[in-house]
Amino acid sequence: MTDQTISTKPSPEAIAARSVLLGRARWGWPEIAFWAIAVALYFLMPTKLMLLSEIAILGLLALSIDLVLGFAGIVTLGQGAFFGIGAYTAGLLARYGMGEAPWSDPLLGLLISGGVAAALGFVTSFLVLRGSDLTRLMVTLGVALIVEELVNQMKWLTGGSDGLQGVMPSAVMGVWEFDLYGKTAYVYSLTVLFVLFVIARRIVKSPFGLSLLAIKGNPLRTRAIGMPVNGRLVLIYTIAAFYAGVAGGLVAQTTQFASPDYVAFHRSADALLMLVFGGAGHLYGGLIGSVIFRVMQDVLGNITPQYWQFWLGMMLVLLVLFIRGGIIGLLMKMRGRIMRNRGPSA
């Protein structure tokens, strides 16, 4: 469990604290159930695999926003920029790789997509270190608009408003070809989501993750205890950009298409909404939010697309007025009430 040499015998309180802290990093049964259901859906809903794959990808994008907003407290309306950059990077690699390894290899494509997005994230992170929520909001939005403008103007590379055609990634690990039913797409997207989720989970439970929560809570004190606040924010912003870039790469590979729609304002806004629906700051909020968002969009949007937007707006208004903390916040409040009724226990 540890590589530290313990000179003095720890007190009973210290031993208790160790187990409390390590217990917090352990997987609970609701978490295991969540992923078990995600796997089971592959078998239960074989006709909806493309939709499920899309949900997994949106969940990853929302997760990337959770890292910056839910943990570090940076309000962003520009995560779509990284998503779009990732999508075009993967798309271009697959297109000009012509289905030949190594350049059209999906996994390599994802790494490069994430890397390019992370590079942009690193550069732009210095713009969001300071300023109020409003400034950060407008700066991130501004960056996203610049990227959108670039994508639209560089027609020779991106295909402009028609989108990028002829994206042909080769088989995943050289074995699983992308199919029309989305079998490979879902397994691939869910696996990537899971791996990145596990890493994100380790990040937020680590001292680094704790320092992000501290910065969100009180930047003044974090500096007073000697924390390099700017460095921490740059790192998490860059990591989140990597996540969003990978999500973009996934969408380009699984749908074999990339369009300016991926960098549009509503992409960033939708992802933010999913996170807020689910509840920011718990990692699962974005995932749960993306499921609800996409399913509702599918159901309501099938009636008429206009209605969907109306209900989406309505839900947002109600959410802000009545259920802050999203679905997870609501669940935790309910659990808190049940625990209290059972009697006081730590």
């Binding site: 806004a269 933010l272 909404l273 807020v276 937007q309 109306f310 989406l312 707006g313 309505m314 839900m315 947002l316 208004v317 959410l319 802000v320 007025l321």
Partner: peptide, 9 residues
């Protein structure tokens, strides 16, 4: 979020 909601509606 609230005002974006109003915009959507």
């Amino acid at each position: 979020l609230f005002s974006i909601g109003l915009v959507f509606m």
